[in-house]
Each structure stands twice: as structure tokens, then as C-alpha cells.
Write a protein that binds this DNA or RNA. Structure first.
Lengths: 194, 194
DNA sequence: GTGGAAAGTAAGCGACTGCTTACATCTTTG
DNA sequence: CAAAGATGTAAGCAGTCGCTTACTTTCCAC
């Protein structure tokens, strides 16, 4: 079996990863505009110039962050649990997953053409997955409304700091949301709580 | 009847209003961080320094914009039509109302303590109004979920640029949303479309 | 008219931004 | 070992930002 090479003192892959991680955290905490390349490099323990050598541009780095982990949640389980996974991310008290690119996107209105396309692509992927749960000719529209709801919950809680959403237990919120989603997706299913 | 005073050449009130209007438009279009005090002054046809003389700080100006017109929608009609009014604002194709501070807030994650408090205050007012439509002990939580939904729709459509939400006719979207809201608010009312 | 406050202006300060350059140091390979 | 590429670093450039200052112009009460 191929022996692992001795640990490199200089490890471009490791610094690349560190930059990617630091960028993900900071973008999610502060949004794109309020995050500085100097901050990212400092948190990653790397030199500023390397950020540009490896990623080209601040916006390219943002796109790399989004592309790298943006589809995590989508493919982390079956489609019917996707709303649950999204809510779990948004309603978590602990900072686990607080660096998720979805949160970064909620806080960042990046304007570049490429970022815009990447963002729309991600949205389409999520909608396509959610649409599997819906029936009828307007399945995609309904799926998009579900996604909008989840996004709105994340935005109100994380960015606006809504009190009720922070105080209520996560499963209580989820039960309510499930009622609404059922009413939206299953056209004639009975609306039963929990 | 009191004759209007002859049009003043130098009108501090008028320039104040012009600055407020230009700021509202630009904040709503680009968000807080991507809006420059130079841009605001230019669009208002006023000098930069006046902005600081009249409003003190860029963030103070933002707060003034929000406080000035933030409660418009809330008090523009009865509470039971509030969801309709919000959706009307978010789903409008024309740029009418595109300078509304609600849109500005969706695009701006202003960090200052005062802005945060103002934003939360507005959120509470809207939730209080929506909670009148709900029943049961969890009325406020449900109201907040309704608000989150509307906010999410505005965010996905205006900031993320979701395709389905842009393509679908406004009344179609509204009918779907009304179904979900009914399921959320009226605990045992039958779920009837439109 | 005239003095003085109000309204408007031009210029620039200092700090910060994204990004580049020129250079030092390590690691691998022939 | 030596050349060469990969990796890391320090310094700074050019532009922009929010905000201030020193000044001129207009307006109104007397």
C-alpha cells in the first residue's frame, strides 16, 4: 500500500482548505461586504496574497465557498426530509453549521454575474427536489413557496433576530411549519398537526 | 386662506426630503453597504456635507429612512389585508414602491445597535398586527411564521431572483399563500383555495 | 441697507479596501 | 548538490469610503 508522504511543512492544500473554511465562517457571520480579505487570511492563519493566488478574487472565493458546500444539505438525505434539514440548520442554537453557505447567501447580496447564476442554480436545484413532494401542475411554484418560507424563517431568525422564533423550541416551530407545508403541497390531504 | 410663502430658493426642508427619498431608493436597490453617501447626495441633487449636517451619520440616515416610512404598509389598511398588501409590494413588476424601506431592510444587514433595535421594533409591530388574525395560545408564533413567509417570498423574488416567483401571476401566488396562511392561522377552518 | 444666521459648496483627511509586486524560503527532482 | 518550481511573506499601490473643515452665498429681521 502506498505510504503516505511525510507531512509537508508547506502544504498548499491545507492552506487552501483553511482559507475556504475561514471564508465560509466569516461570510456567514457578517455577509460578503463586511468581510475583508485581510480578516479571512488572518483567521485562516495564512497570508493575504495566497488568497488571491489560490482563488483569484474575493468574489471568486465566495463562489468557491458556495459551490463547495452549497449542495450539502440537498444531498444529505431523502427529499422528503429536506425541509427538516433546512429548519434544523436555521433553528440551531449552537454555532454548529453556522458557517453554512446558505446563511452566507442570506446575508450577502453579491452582485456579480457569476455569483448570481450560481445562486439561481442552487435555488433551482432545491426547488426541483422539493417539487418531488408536490402534486399538480403548479408543483414547482408550490415548491418555491415552500423554499421561500424556509428561507424567510432563516432570515427572520438569523438576520433580523425575531424574538418569537428564537424563543420557541425548534420542534414546536417545525410542527407548525409542517402544517402549512402540508396544506400547500398535498392538495387534498387532511391538515393534521405534527 | 393663508397664502403659501413664495418658493424659497434655499429650502432646507426640501433638500432634507430629497436626501431622504434618494436614500430610500438607493438602500432598497443596492442595500446599505453598497450605497455610498456620494451616490445619495448626487441622486438628491444635494451636497454631500448637507447629508451629514441634517442626518449626522450614514447609519442615522438609514434609520431615518426606516422610521419615516417603515410603518406605512402596516397602517395603510385593516390588519386582515396586511398579507395582501405586503405581497402586493413584493410581487409588483413595476418599480412602484420599489424604494420601500422593507425592501431596503431585506438587502441590508446593518449591524449598529440602534438599527437592530429599530428593525426588531418594526418586526414586533407587524407581528402584533398579524397575531390579531390568529387564534390559540401560540398566536404570536404563528403570526411570526406568516411574516417570515412573506419576507421569504420578497427575499427570494427580489434578492435571489427566483424564476417561478417572477413568472407566476401575482394573484396565483397570492391564492397559494392564502391557503397556507389559512392552515396556519385558523386552527380548524377548512382549507379552501382562493 | 446691514448684520447675522441659515443653506450650500469645494476640498481634502485619514482610514480602509481589493489586489499586486518583488522578494525570501522551502521542497522536490534530476 | 544544484537548479527550479512551489509556497510563503512584506510592503505598498491606487482607489474608495465616511466624515470634517473652511469657506462662500443666500435669506430674513431689524
Amino acid at each position: 500500500m502506498p505510504q503516505n508522504p511525510p507531512p509537508r511543512r508547506r502544504d498548499s492544500q491545507a492552506t487552501r482548505a483553511a482559507l475556504l473554511k475561514a471564508a465560509g465562517e466569516l461570510f456567514a457571520e457578517r455577509g460578503y461586504d463586511r468581510t475583508t480579505v485581510r480578516d479571512i487570511a488572518a483567521r485562516a492563519g495564512a497570508n493575504q496574497a495566497l488568497l488571491f493566488r489560490y482563488f483569484g478574487t474575493k468574489e471568486d472565493l465566495f463562489n468557491a465557498v458556495v459551490a463547495h458546500r452549497g449542495m450539502d444539505l440537498l444531498h444529505a438525505g431523502p427529499a422528503e426530509q429536506l425541509p427538516h434539514r433546512i429548519l434544523e440548520l436555521f433553528l440551531a442554537d449552537a454555532p454548529e453549521g453556522s458557517d453554512h453557505p446558505i446563511l452566507a447567501m442570506l446575508r450577502s447580496a453579491v452582485v456579480g454575474k457569476e455569483s448570481m447564476e450560481l445562486r439561481k442554480e442552487m435555488g433551482r436545484a432545491y426547488v426541483r427536489s422539493l417539487a418531488e413532494l408536490a402534486e399538480g401542475p403548479e408543483a414547482e411554484l408550490r415548491a418555491e413557496l415552500v423554499l421561500a418560507w424556509l428561507v424567510g424563517i432563516g432570515f427572520c431568525r438569523s438576520v433580523l433576530g425575531s424574538d418569537n422564533l428564537r424563543a420557541a423550541p425548534a420542534d414546536r416551530v417545525e410542527a407548525e411549519v409542517r402544517r402549512g407545508i402540508s396544506a400547500l403541497l398535498d392538495l387534498d390531504a387532511p391538515v393534521t398537526p405534527s
